[in-house]
């Protein structure tokens, strides 16, 4: 597993230069709450036909900063982005709320302060 650090502002450039649809399989977007308002966002890729080759881009952020959407590059990232919006209460451009949660259920359940 290769871990590469990036920032939210350069994310689109980094992944745009890296991602080739016929070479890399996009796994998912992941978020990890680090506590005290900090959050670690991860974008994970694996290579077709090669053993144990996983590349993980990560960026540190907080709850308020909007996260850039990767849909233009990778159409299948919509689901992961909608999930992050629901589970952490972040804002992602173009992603709607309400994939899993209802109006009266716990808002952003995976945040550390819940």
């Amino acid at each position: 597993m290769t871990k590469i650090e990036t920032t939210l502002s350069t994310l689109l450039l980094d992944i745009g230069a890296f991602y080739k649809p016929k070479e890399w399989h996009f796994l998912t977007v992941n978020g990890i709450d680090l506590g005290e308002g900090k959050i670690e966002l991860q974008w994970i890729f694996s290579k077709y036909g090669v053993k144990d080759e996983v590349v993980l881009y990560y960026a540190l952020s907080d709850y308020e900063t909007p996260v850039p959407s990767l849909v233009a590059l990778i159409p299948s990232s919509t689901m992961g982005e909608r999930e992050i919006v629901d589970m952490f209460g972040l804002t992602v451009e173009g992603a709607q709320k309400g994939l899993y949660l209802d109006k009266d259920s716990l808002p952003h359940p995976l945040r550390g302060d819940v």
Binding site: T28, N30, I32, P75, S76, T78, M79, G80
Partner: peptide, 15 residues
């Protein structure tokens, strides 16, 4: 601290 589960159907939905 964190258990992230990504299931097959979840990423198959756009297709």
């Amino acid at each position: 601290e964190r258990v992230r589960i990504k299931t097959p159907t979840f990423s198959g939905i756009p297709a």
